[in-house]
């Protein structure tokens, strides 16, 4: 994701559904508006759950980069 500065990265690789998503929700609660948070996840559920949660929570889904054996899911806190 070029041009995006990551404020905080959560390494949730090795954690199973719903671990990575719950970690993101926890961090998002205390993050500042404008913070960009990346979650590293090898879990298949998070790949679809996280974007859905972001939409529901009114936060921004920046994108997902698939890397070797895991996803890097990026979110921005907008409110």
């Amino acid at each position: 994701m070029e041009g995006v500065t990551i404020t905080r990265e959560i390494d949730a690789r090795g954690s199973f559904c719903p671990g990575p998503m719950m970690e993101l929700i926890r961090v998002m609660k205390t993050a500042a508006v404008g913070d960009v948070i990346a979650v590293l996840s090898g879990d298949r559920g998070s790949r679809t759950d996280i974007p859905k949660w972001l939409q529901k929570a009114g936060q921004e889904f920046v994108g997902v980069e698939t890397q070797d054996g895991f996803d890097r899911i990026i979110a921005r806190k907008v409110k």
Partner: peptide
């Protein structure tokens, strides 16, 4: 082997959030 979080820890985390 796969280090799955204990069900109790998952519940504690969900309850905190």
């Amino acid at each position: 082997k796969k280090n799955v979080a204990h069900w109790y820890d998952t519940l504690v985390q969900a309850k905190e959030i």
